[in-house]
Design a protein around this nucleic acid. Sequence first.
DNA 1: ATCCGTGCAAAGAATTTGCATACAT
DNA 2: ATGTATGCAAATTCTTTGCACGGAT
Lengths: 134, 134
Amino acid sequence: MPNYSRQRESIKKYLDSHFTHPTAETVYLDIKEEFPNISLGTVYRNLNLLADMGEILRISLGNGPDRYDGRTSPHYHFICSQCGQVLDMDIGPMPEIDEAARQNFSGVITGHITHFFGLCPKCNIKNTFIRKGE
Amino acid sequence: MPNYSRQRESIKKYLDSHFTHPTAETVYLDIKEEFPNISLGTVYRNLNLLADMGEILRISLGNGPDRYDGRTSPHYHFICSQCGQVLDMDIGPMPEIDEAARQNFSGVITGHITHFFGLCPKCNIKNTFIRKGE
DNA sequence: ATCCGTGCAAAGAATTTGCATACAT
DNA sequence: ATGTATGCAAATTCTTTGCACGGAT
């Protein structure tokens, strides 16, 4: 069982109040305001601990550093192909995806991860204005 | 435009005939039989080139090294939670996943990636035998 | 002749870990 | 007092890159 630690509590609070899906580095730099001596290693250790305890979510984007999310209820993520921003999607779980995968599969499907790609609302609008200006 | 290179052709052939979703390291070690002097850097460079040209697929698993796949027709992948093996799924594209994501989303959804998790057929059978033995 | 590809080794990015000290129970 | 957490730096893992040389057009 983990012991209490102010650093870990602060990291948890940070993720509960920021919905930016920060990297470990970003968490580190921001938490540093409160704990000037905190180390990146400690941030990584606590992010791993919290993720293992199910108190936060780790999001692997495939390239670049992992992101972390305080929202633990199952939800999907969107990654903007233009600005790289990660957004929470406003849709519930889709068990039918697993159901489809179970067709013709003789193993066991326990779940899936899905990430969506495209243009985020901001970049979409930005592009529209640029085209108008041409 | 890229020039012809025997190394690149060999890598492409390797991926076209092996359905194991190898890592760059595995490709490197196996290609080394034919080109004893080939370097890991060259393997990475060619895997990137082939992926950029759309001749192979890069699969990011979220942890551990990336995998590569000679099958370029769109398909989904399964990752065994027990043995780590990556398998091609026998299901076609699911555009309805993107359709669902477009609800309540004011950006543009161009596509998604989905990976399935669970027990592969082999590990599933193995586990059944172990349980019988108890 | 020119451009591209290669091998090699070094650098880079992201993350983990060993160790001595400090904190929580 | 005992076990866990921290800070720091070094180590690890995966991948990219600079450079001199060799191969392709």
